[in-house]
Structure formats: structure tokens, C-alpha cells
Simulated scan of single mutants.
Amino acid sequence: MKTLRLRPGKERSLLRRHPWIFESAIAKGGGDSGETVRVESADGRFLAWAAFSPTSRIRARAWSFDEAQRIDAAFFTAAVARAVRARQR
């Protein structure tokens, strides 16, 4: 699993559950387009699982803030089901 390490102080928005990680917040790391990466604070603490986008200013978008969460087919099936239920109300 590839990792993004953020610059010091750039984890604040993720701690508030904002899903975007801008290119200027990243100290090191990367991945392939669309690849799920582990996002860590400057001191190595887990922050999120995110989809990496090497050409966007929004370099990664968080999938989950739960370290134990697996980003797999079941994750996407559940996310789509939640979205459908939300729209049925």
C-alpha cells in the first residue's frame, strides 16, 4: 500500500473529516491514478484512506477515516446502497 505523508499542520482539515487533500499539503508520497493510498500526518499517524489523483490540485480524496476499513468491492456496494437509501427518503 502506498502512503502520502502530509506536511506538519496540514492534517487539521482531515481531522474535521474534510475529504480533500491538496497537493500543497503533501510532504512526500504518491500513487497511480485512482489508487487507494494511506494518508498519514507528519508524525506518521493514520488519517485516512484516499483515492490518489496525480494530475489534480486536489491530489487525494478520502474514502474513509477508519484505519480498519477495507476499500474493496463490499465497501463500494455499501456506499452505493447508502446513497440509494438517502435518495429514496
Rank of each mutant, 00 (worst) to 15 (best):
M1L: 06
T3E: 15
R5D: 01
R5H: 07
R7F: 04
R7Y: 05
P8V: 03
G9W: 10
G9A: 05
K10L: 06
K10S: 10
R12Q: 12
L14N: 05
L14I: 04
R16F: 07
H18E: 13
E23V: 14
A25F: 10
K28T: 10
K28N: 09
K28M: 01
G29Q: 04
G30W: 06
G30D: 05
G31K: 02
G31W: 09
G31Q: 11
D32I: 00
G34C: 01
E35H: 06
T36P: 12
T36A: 12
V39K: 03
V39P: 11
A42D: 11
D43Y: 04
G44S: 08
G44A: 05
F46H: 11
A48T: 02
A48V: 00
W49K: 03
A50Y: 11
A50Q: 06
F52A: 06
F52V: 01
T55D: 14
I58W: 01
R59P: 03
R59F: 07
R59W: 10
A60L: 04
A62D: 11
S64E: 07
S64G: 08
S64V: 04
F65H: 09
F65T: 09
F65R: 04
D66R: 10
E67D: 09
E67V: 00
E67S: 02
A68V: 01
A68L: 05
Q69N: 01
Q69R: 14
R70T: 15
D72C: 05
A79L: 13
A79G: 12
A81Y: 03
R82K: 13
A83S: 13
R85Y: 08
R87Y: 09
R87D: 13
